[in-house]
Structure formats: structure tokens, C-alpha cells
């Protein structure tokens, strides 16, 4: 006996297409506007100016001279390969996808951490989302949003949400039970415990999730080139279609540069919380050192 699961899924998609066309059209329009805006800024700025900004961001977040120099040189290489516009278009798509993924994934992760029933429901869905071959998302996405970058972004969001949810949930759940008890023993409300204890201590884990989301989004963007998302994905797909080794390699190299840059910078941001905290503490300690120390009792 053959169960026609694929057929059922298709009829669900058809039904959604008929009944929610207004929603998908609206969403597509909105996403297009946002990506267009980001892209307009990234491409509109003079490449050298933007490269300086990107290198400065690397310097601020990682405090590594090597990485700062690498980003400047690598982005100049992209310019010299003539792939600057495509790269910035891809970066715009990645940034917007990541923004949506985090806006959905982090709150969902918090909810799952605080409520075990939610966690039990969410986990298998995340497994499905992560294990499903990425191309499969593209098919209904094209039906919903037509050809172009919006289906690419939709597929990218679905594909890259899981680590945001998982690492947020993990970061909150792995908190030392005694710390939670201590916060409760002083009569703190759940909302204060979340804001004052759970989230600050989960920060590093959440940032690891952000890093993963960005990397997954970038890997998906190339696949999205198949449905006409343009950008570097388009360049690579074109290279494959025309068996143009040189073009394909250059497009691939530009993706690698973006990947390394985004990975290093977001890993640097992972310890940003510590850096800011240490700076605040040093300031307090310096201020305290200015006043005469209170002699220790006993």
C-alpha cells in the first residue's frame, strides 16, 4: 500500500496558496522592500568607504589586528574580481534573513527553555527543519513567493532558525540550579530572573547561536541562487551552468571571504558581553581606588 504523503503535502500547499495568497504577496513585498533598502545602502556607499567600515567593525569586535588587515585585503580582492555588487547583494540577503531568524528563534528558544511542553513540541520540528535537504524548501517557497530573492530568503530563514532556538534554550537551561534557587529565594519575579540572571548568563551561548545562524544563512544563499536570488549564488550557479571554472571559483572565493569575515566577527561579539562587563568593572574599581579604602573588619 502506498501512502501518498507527498500528495497530501502538495494539497496542503495548494490550499495555502489559494487561501493565503494575500499574506504571501504582502510578505514578499515587505521583505523585498527591506532587502532592497539594505542593499541600496551597501551598494550605494563607495566600496572603499564600506570596506573601511567593515574593517573597523572587525577591529572593534575582535580586537585582532590580523583579522582587521585580512578583512580589508579580502574585501579589496572582491572588488578587484568585479564581484563587489554581487557580494553586497548577498550580504544584504544574509543580514535580513538572519534578522528574521533571530527575531523568531531567540524568543522561541526562551519560551522553550521556560516551558518543557513547548520544548517537547519544538524539538522534533527543529529536527525536521534541519535534516530536510535544503533544496526541498525551495519548491514551495517558489510557489508562494515566485522566482527571485524572496523565496531564497524564506528558505534561508526556515533553514537557519534551529540553532538560534537550540542554543538559546541550552544557554538558559544549563544555568546552575543553585543560582536559580538563590534568585527565587530572594523573592524575584520570573521576569526579573530572566532579565537579570538567565539571559546575561546565557549571552555567550545565544551569541554562538547567532554565529551558527549566520553561517547557515550564508550557505543557503548560494543554494538560493538556483531560484534566481542573484548575488554570489547567481554567479556560482551561472559558473556551473556554463561550466565556467574561473567564474565559479571566483564566486566561491567571494562566498568564503564573506563567511570567514562574518564568522570571526560574530565569534568576537560572543565575548563582547564579557568585554563590556570587564570595562564597567574596571571603571568601578578605579573609581573605588580613588576613594580611601574602607578597612576590613575582623
Amino acid at each position: 500500500m502506498r501512502l501518498d504523503i507527498g500528495g497530501w503535502f502538495e494539497s496542503v500547499i495548494d490550499w495555502m496558496l489559494v487561501n493565503f495568497a494575500w499574506f504571501f504577496d504582502g510578505a514578499a513585498w515587505l521583505v523585498n522592500q527591506i532587502v532592497g533598502g539594505v542593499e541600496y545602502v551597501l551598494i550605494g556607499l563607495h566600496p572603499f568607504l564600506l570596506i573601511a567600515v567593515l574593517a573597523a567593525a572587525a577591529a572593534a569586535l575582535t580586537r585582532s589586528l590580523g583579522l582587521t588587515l585580512f578583512s580589508a585585503v579580502a574585501f579589496l580582492l572582491i572588488v578587484s574580481m568585479g564581484l563587489w555588487v554581487e557580494s553586497m547583494s548577498t550580504l544584504a540577503v544574509v543580514l535580513v534573513s538572519v534578522l528574521f531568524s533571530l527575531a523568531i528563534g531567540i524568543p522561541l528558544g526562551i519560551w522553550a527553555a521556560l516551558n518543557s511542553s513547548v520544548s517537547a513540541v519544538v524539538r522534533p520540528i527543529l529536527d525536521l527543519m534541519q535534516a530536510m535537504p535544503v533544496f526541498v524548501y525551495l519548491i514551495p517557497a517558489v510557489f508562494f513567493f515566485g522566482v527571485g530573492r524572496v523565496p531564497g530568503i524564506a528558505a534561508t530563514i526556515v533553514f537557519s532558525i534551529p540553532p538560534a532556538v537550540r542554543l538559546t534554550e541550552l544557554g538558559i537551561r544549563k544555568l546552575d540550579a543553585e543560582l536559580l534557587e538563590a534568585a527565587m529565594a530572594f523573592g524575584a519575579k520570573k521576569s526579573l530572573i530572566l532579565k537579570d540572571v538567565q539571559l546575561p548568563l546565557a549571552f555567550s551561548s545565544i551569541m554562538a547561536g547567532v554565529n551558527q545562524v549566520i553561517m547557515l544563512a550564508l550557505s543557503m544563499v548560494v543554494v538560493a541562487g538556483l531560484v534566481g536570488a542573484g548575488g554570489l549564488g547567481g554567479v556560482v550557479v551561472q559558473g556551473v551552468a556554463q561550466l565556467d571554472t574561473a567564474r565559479g571559483f571566483e564566486g566561491g572565493l567571494a562566498v568564503v571571504i564573506l563567511a570567514v569575515y562574518l564568522d570571526r566577527v560574530t565569534s568576537g561579539a560572543r565575548s563582547l558581553g564579557d568585554v563590556l562587563r570587564n570595562r564597567r568593572i574596571r571603571k568601578e574599581q578605579r573609581a573605588a581606588a580613588g576613594t580611601p579604602a574602607v578597612a576590613a573588619v575582623s
Binding site: I281, E284, A293, V294, A295, A296, V297, S298
Partner: peptide, 10 residues
């Protein structure tokens, strides 16, 4: 200060 840590509050 009562517990002898008045000089290390930060």
C-alpha cells in the same frame, strides 16, 4: 563591610 569585605565591593 560587616563581613570584612568592605574594601572589595567591586
Amino acid at each position: 563591610a560587616l563581613v570584612g569585605l568592605g574594601d572589595r565591593i567591586h
